[in-house]
Computed example of a mutant assay.
Amino acid sequence: MLAETRRCGGGNGGGNCGNGGDDETEDGVEYYRLRSFSITANGVFNLGDSLKSRRSRSINSVTSSGTSCSSTRDARLLSSASQLSGIESGVENDQGESTDDGTRVATYKVGMLGASGVGKTALTAQFTTSEYICAYDASLDDEYGQKSVSVMIDGQETELEIIDHPATEMSVETFCSSYNPDVYVVVYSVVDRRSLKFAEETLVHLWKSDYMATHGVILVGNKVDLQRKREVAAMMGRRLANSCGCKFIETSSGLAHHVDELLVGILAQIKLNPQRDRNQVTRRRRSKQRRTILKHLLGFKRKTKSCENLFVL
């Protein structure tokens, strides 16, 4: 009989705990993969993966036998990461799964948007495990759809349902209205300028449909490992994110570069949604918005907040 919690090796090439976070059963007990992270001013640290039984889901701490550090971002951009714990503690969520002792694990939906071939499916696969997954494995193309990943950050567990948008089969409008994700991740490939145009059109739709006002949105430039083929400079993605008021990060699903940072940043942006709602209510209550209008006319754009800091509004 397996123990209630089993550890998997952390980092790329870690121990085997099943395929990409899929549930396993043994002796009638259902197990799932739990990914654990810690956030410090120096970056996001991958504490490794473990297997947990559904009935032990209320356990709030996991100790990994092997601790590995993922690629860390600039400490300046992550210095406010500690806010995440405070945000989580103040959020009440009706979604989630109840455990045997009544503890609820909050569940949120993540919409992965972008043109075909930009690496949405590869990123989704990397989200589900600390093990290395070759981003250029053609078999991944058949794995698009909906996947779930359980994430523990500083002792608090959350489940994310990641929905991979089939760009050739469903319009962005239909996808958004059908699934209504809690956060939108808009992906383009840095080696395909046309995919940036698709991402821009997607962001415009999210803005016009008022999704961006109440939901977290992250623009992701993927495939930075293919530097010699790059067609989209980081500055172009950053400028687009700034103009739309969303977040920005560059990743490589092939090298698992900044993938952990993106995953943790997704959760951080979800936790900030209630604050967005409160800000919206406040704005709507104002009878006059002359100052806001003037700021936009004069080109004032969130200069005090970095689009690359995924832990703030």
Rank of each mutant, 00 (worst) to 15 (best):
E131I: 07
A268L: 07
V172A: 09
A213I: 10
L263P: 02
V105P: 01
M235T: 14
S189T: 07
A135N: 02
D164Y: 10
G111W: 01
E30Q: 14
K223L: 09
Y136S: 11
T121K: 02
M152D: 02
D154V: 00
G265A: 08
S50M: 04
S50N: 09
L196E: 01
V91W: 00
Y136N: 04
N309I: 03
D277A: 13
K223E: 02
S209K: 13
S189R: 01
S38A: 13
N46Y: 06
G66H: 12
Y179Q: 12
T67Y: 11
R73I: 15
I218N: 01
F300P: 02
N19T: 10
K247W: 02
E97K: 11
V224N: 08
S243M: 13
A106L: 08
M112E: 02
T292Y: 12
L196T: 00
D74V: 12
C134S: 00
S38E: 13
E157H: 05
E4A: 11
S189N: 04
K197G: 06
E143T: 10
H257G: 00
T251I: 03
C8L: 08
Y211G: 06
K147D: 03
V187L: 12
E261Y: 10
G155E: 05
R284D: 13
A241S: 05
N222W: 03
G155Q: 05
K247C: 02
Q126R: 13
G86W: 03
V191P: 01
K120N: 03
S80C: 05
A135I: 00
D49K: 06
E200Y: 09
Q146H: 05
E24Y: 05
R76L: 14
R286N: 13
N222E: 03
R283C: 10
P166M: 13
Q126T: 07
H205K: 10
I293R: 15
Q126L: 09
D182E: 11
S82W: 08
C8N: 04
R57Q: 13
T40H: 07
S189Y: 00
A135S: 11
E308V: 04
E4S: 07
V185F: 08
V187S: 07
C69N: 14
A41R: 11
G66W: 06
I293Q: 14
S68R: 14
S71G: 11
F175G: 05
N222C: 04
I163D: 08
F198P: 00
S306F: 00
H205P: 02
Q95I: 06
C307V: 15
R285Y: 11
V29F: 01
D164K: 05
T304K: 12
